[in-house]
Design a binder for these strands. Structure first.
Lengths: 336, 336
DNA sequence: ATATTAAATTGACACGCGTAAAATACTTAA
DNA sequence: TTAAGTATTTTACGCGTGTCAATTTAATAT
C-alpha cells in the first residue's frame, strides 16, 4: 500500500480510507485512485486489513447441510442480502456433524466476523456450552432451529402452524392423516412437528398414528422411499392419508407409491393422499405435485439478515432476545 | 499467545508450532498444552496466523450457483476432502453472475489460499483476462466447466459421452430423440452437449431436431416445465423421444407431462420417452424415475481435490496442464 | 557415562495495514 | 478576501503471530 500510495501520489492513510469506504474521500482523489488501480493492480491484504480492525466486514453463515435444498436456498438468499449491503459472507456447512459445527465455531470465532447467521444442528444439552460461549463473544442470530436463550434473536417458522393447517385441511376434506417421520430425525424441527400433530389430533378427538421409519443421515428422499415401500408392503396404515414430517421424505414417499402402483391424489380414483411440510424447491415438480405447507423463504431470510444488520449497528448488543416465528402457508396441489 | 505460553509454562514459538501441527512437538508437551487449553480457552487469531505465513491452510471452493443440487453436492464432497486432510475450505457461490464471480476472485486473491477449486461460469472471452490473471497468482484447479488453457488442470465430465450413450440407447430401442435445451443456457456444458447431439445424429444419418426454449436464470425446472407445456400444446416434436440437456430441465419436463396427462415411459402404452443428463440427486425420485447419464460425482470431486493437493505439495507449479474427462454412466430407469 | 541428535527456548524482526494526533492544505460560504 | 470548516498528509504505533538464528535442554544411542 505504501508503494501504491507513492505511485499514485496520495498518502497511505487516504488510500486506506478509500478501501474502507470509497465515498469517504473527495471525488477528485477517488477517480485518481481508481485510475492508479487500473495501472498498478494493487489489492489490499485480507489479513492485514482485518488484523487491526475493531469491526470486520465479514459475516458468517452456518447451515447444517449445504446439499439440503432448503438450506441451500436459504443460504443463497442470506448471501445476497449480505453482499447487497457490502458485507462479505462466509458460508459454512456443518455436514450434519456436531464435531464439524464445533470446528466451524472455532474458525468463526477466530475470524471475528461482524456477525453470524446460524442454523444450528439439534444438539444434546451437553454440547450447548460450546455454542453458548460462542454467542457471548460473537453477535449471532439463530434461524430455522431455535436453542432456548442463545443468540440475540431467533427467526424461524412456526412448526405448529405447518402441522395444524395441513391436518385440519386433510381432516376436513377426507380422513385425518397418519404422521410419517424418521425415528431419529436429523432436524430438531421434526420433534416439534410430531408434538404438534399429537396435540392437534387430540384436540380433534381423533386417534393419532405416528409412523416412524428407520434410516439415518441426510438422504431423506431415499429414507422416505424405503420407509414408504416397507409401509405399503406391510399395509401398516390406519388411514388413506399421510402427512410427512418434511417434503424430502414426502418426495421419497411419492416415489415409492409410483413404484408400487399406488395412485396418489385427492380425486376419487386415488388410493392415497400424501402431504408434506416445507415446500421444498422440488415439491411442485413431483407427480402428482405435492400439497404442502410452505416456509416463507424470503421473509425468513430477509428478516434474519435485517435482524443481524441491526444487531451489528447497535454494537452487537440487543436489549432483549426476541423470537420471531412465521406461519406456514398451505399450498394446495394435487397430491392431497 | 504470549500470555498463554507463560501460563502453560511453554515458550511461545513452541505453542505456535503446536497449532501449526500438533504432532510436531513432543508428546509430553503436547498433552501439557492441551491441558492448558482446557483451562485458559485461548484460540489463535486467524488474521495474525495467516498474515505472516508463506502458505495458508485455506482452500477456496467456487461454484456458479450453490442452490443447484449438482453443485451443492460437489461442493459438499470437496469440502469433506479438504477437511479430511486438514485444510479449511471456504465456499463461495457466484450467484450466476459474472460480477459476483469477479468479486470472489478478488476476495480469494486477497485470502491467499493454498489453492482454489473452481467451477467457472461460462464467460465471454472478454472476461477471460480476470480469471487468467487469477490463475497465474493462485494455484487453481478447474472443474465442471473448462476454460481453455487456464488453471493447472481441468477435471470434468465428458459431455460427448453423456449424449452419445443416451442417443444411441434411445435410437436402438425406439426412435432417436429430439434435443431439448434452453436457448441461452446458463451452463457452458450445454453447448458441448448440443454439438455432441448434432454430431452423433449426423453420424447415425438421422435428422436432428433441437428444441430451444425461452427463459433465463437458474430455475431450470420451472423453465423446463414452461418450455415443455408450450411444446406439448403446440405439438412441436418430430419424434416421441426427448433428450433434455440436463436433468433439471427434464424434471420440469416430466412435471409438464404429468400436468398435461401425457404418459411418459418406455412401455407400449406410453406416449413419450424422456431422458436427461447429469443424474441429479432428485432424478431417481421422479415419476417415472428418470433415465439419464450420470456424472461420477465422487470420482470427479475426489480427483479434483487430489489434483489440488498434489499441486499444492509441488509448490503450486505443475509441469503441464492436464485435462481429465470422466465418462458418463447410462442409468436406465423407467422414463426412457 | 558420554557422545550424538533432536527438540525447546530466547530474543528479535517482519508482515501489511488500521488508526490516532497533529499539522497542513483545500473547499466553501459569507 | 477571509474565516471557518473539512479533507488530506505526516508521523508513528500497534495488532498477534510466523519465522529465523543462536543457544540451551532433553532424549536417544553408544
Amino acid at each position: 500500500m505504501e508503494d501504491f500510495a507513492q505511485a499514485s501520489g496520495i498518502s497511505r492513510p487516504t488510500i486506506s480510507k478509500f478501501f474502507n469506504d470509497p465515498s469517504s474521500v473527495r471525488e477528485s482523489l477517488k477517480s485518481k485512485i481508481e485510475a492508479a488501480l487500473e495501472k498498478y493492480d494493487y489489492y489490499p491484504n485480507f489479513y492485514a486489513i482485518n488484523q487491526n480492525r475493531q469491526l470486520t466486514k465479514n459475516i458468517g453463515i452456518v447451515v447444517p447441510y449445504v446439499s439440503d435444498p432448503f438450506f441451500a436456498e436459504i443460504a443463497r438468499n442470506l448471501e445476497r442480502r449480505c453482499i447487497d449491503v457490502g458485507y462479505t459472507p462466509f458460508l459454512f456447512s456443518s455436514h450434519g456433524e456436531q464435531a464439524q459445527e464445533n470446528a466451524i465455531l472455532d474458525t468463526l470465532r477466530s475470524l471475528k466476523p461482524a456477525g453470524v447467521l446460524m442454523a444450528p444442528l439439534g444438539r444434546r444439552s451437553s454440547d450447548k456450552n460450546k455454542i453458548e460461549k460462542f454467542c457471548k463473544n460473537v453477535p449471532t442470530i439463530l434461524f430455522d432451529s431455535n436453542i432456548e436463550g442463545l443468540g440475540a434473536a431467533f427467526i424461524g417458522s412456526d412448526n405448529y402452524s405447518f402441522v395444524s393447517q395441513t391436518v385440519e385441511y386433510l381432516n376436513s376434506t377426507g380422513s385425518a392423516p397418519s404422521f410419517f417421520e424418521m425415528r431419529y430425525p436429523a432436524n430438531p424441527n421434526a420433534n416439534k412437528r410430531r408434538e404438534a400433530y399429537l396435540k392437534i389430533m387430540e384436540s380433534l378427538k381423533l386417534k393419532p398414528q405416528v409412523i416412524k421409519i428407520e434410516g439415518t443421515g441426510w438422504e431423506f428422499e431415499e429414507i422416505g422411499r424405503q420407509g414408504a415401500l416397507k409401509l405399503l408392503r406391510e399395509n401398516g396404515m390406519d388411514t388413506n392419508t399421510i402427512l410427512c414430517s418434511n417434503d424430502r421424505l414426502a418426495i421419497g414417499f411419492l416415489s415409492a407409491c409410483s413404484e408400487m402402483g399406488v395412485k396418489v391424489g385427492k380425486t376419487k380414483n386415488c388410493d392415497l393422499r400424501v402431504a408434506g411440510c416445507d415446500d421444498s424447491p422440488y415439491s411442485r415438480f413431483t407427480s402428482p405435485p405435492l400439497t404442502t405447507a410452505a416456509h416463507d423463504y424470503h421473509t425468513v431470510s430477509d428478516n434474519a439478515a435485517l435482524a443481524l444488520f441491526e444487531l451489528i449497528n447497535n454494537g452487537g448488543k440487543s436489549k432483549k432476545r426476541t423470537e420471531t416465528l412465521y406461519s406456514a402457508k398451505l399450498v394446495l396441489r394435487d397430491s392431497a
